[in-house]
Structure formats: structure tokens, C-alpha cells
Amino acid sequence: MASIHKAVLDLKSLDLLANGNSSVHRLDARAKVLVSLVFILCVVSYGRYELAVLFPFFIFPIVMISMAGLPPLFILKKILLLCPFVLAVGIFNPVFDRQILLHLGPLGISGGWVSFASILTRSILTVGTGFILVGVTGFTAVCQALEKLGMPRVFAVQLLFLYRYIFVLTEESGRASRARELRSCGKKGLGIHSFSSLVGHLLLRTWQRAERIHMAMLARGFTGEFHASRQSGFGMPEIRFALIWSTLFIFLRLQNVPQLLGSLITGLNP
């Protein structure tokens, strides 16, 4: 439970980063969401054996982190947390795909290793961009931007409620689980039995809380519709930001930039 508690604290600190006041922070959330979407689409659209072409894309997270003043180590740690999942997805590629694809001196590298490295790089890029987006925008503003960009309001509201109550729920479940641990004296307690009743209790409590929240909403005139309260402008800075970055990503996607650079330096055409 301690680790869940820590994860929630981390989530809070990621959200607090969004209170910054850099030029990136001040942009309308829609611009940042759009650019991140274009970025992710470009990165994931590459074929499985393409690796070198991905590296120029690192310019986006690096520029964003430095412009917004985010702590790079913090973001890196968050990305590393997800690495086990990526490893689980890609680890069998080198086993099944043994065809030699390229040679580094005497060393032959199989297609499996290349595709594995490609999966890893793409995950770091996309997940990192996700974290940076939340860090410079805030989860709430991301949801609101998605809604303004056409996501059905029901989903946006669901996401917002989930985010609002994730803190309350983890605290509640943390307390319940601590109470169980303290009374099981280092043993397993009553094993799965006590655990299932604990989960059941949590569900019932969540249900009761949902009812109380609904009552609180009704008491304040809720009739089933959420009203947007703030108007934000999509002005010149946003258009410039979205255009420049999107153009760059599409250019990087269409042109093989590492090869272009290589041929410029060596003077050889591929």
C-alpha cells in the first residue's frame, strides 16, 4: 500500500508542476494537446525496424522540459516506472526474430533486437510526452481541452471525477489496508477471506460516497449538464506553437533526417 500512496503523492507533484508560469505553461491547453497528439501519431506510425529516424524526435521533449523548467530527473523516473511493461512487450522479439539485419563491425544485430530497441525508444518518447503534457498543462486542463476538441462530455466528466476521487479513494483504501496489516501481526491475516471483505467494504463505501456527492450536486441545482465556466483564447501564440511543431514532426516523419544529415556530412548519396 505504501507504494500506491507514494504513487499518488507523485501524481500530486506532477500536477503541481502545472502551476508554473513559463511561456509553455501559459499556452492554451488545446494547442499542447494537439501538438502532443501529432507527435505521438508520427512516432508510432514508423515501421518496426526503424530506429535511427526516431532520434530526431527527442528534440520535442528536450525543448519542452527546458522551456517549461520541469525537473528532467523527475520525468525520467516516471518514464522508468513504465519500463517493465515495455520490456514485457518487447523482450521476446530478439528470441523469435533472429534474422541479421545490420552489422556493426563483426557484430551482427538481429531484427529482433532492432525492433525491441525501436519499441523501447517509441515508448520513452510517447510516455515522456504524456508526462510532460500533464506537467505543463495539468490533468484537468488536458481533459477540458480534449472536450473542447470534440471528445464527448460524458467521457471528460468521467475522467475528471476519476482524477478528483483517486486521491480520496487511495487514502481510504490505504487506511483500511493499514488497519488490516496492524491486526494481522505480520502474518497473512485471514488471507483471501479478509481481503475480499475489505475490498467489498471499500466498494460499498465508494457507493455511499457517490450517493452523497450526487446529493451535493443536486443540492446545488445540478440537472444533468455541466456548464463550462472559463473561456480561454486560442490566439496567435497557440497557432504559432501548433504550426511550428506539427510541421516539424511531419517533416521528420516524411524525410529520413539522420540519413540526410549523414549524406550532407559524408557527401555521399544513399
Binding site: 471525477f161 478528483r164 480520496v168 456527492i213 451535493a216 450536486m217
Partner: peptide
């Protein structure tokens, strides 16, 4: 916590 359900 029952009463404050909005993001800000």
C-alpha cells in the same frame, strides 16, 4: 470531500 467535486 463530498461537497467539493470539481477540479478547482
Amino acid at each position: 470531500d463530498d461537497q467539493l467535486f470539481m477540479p478547482t
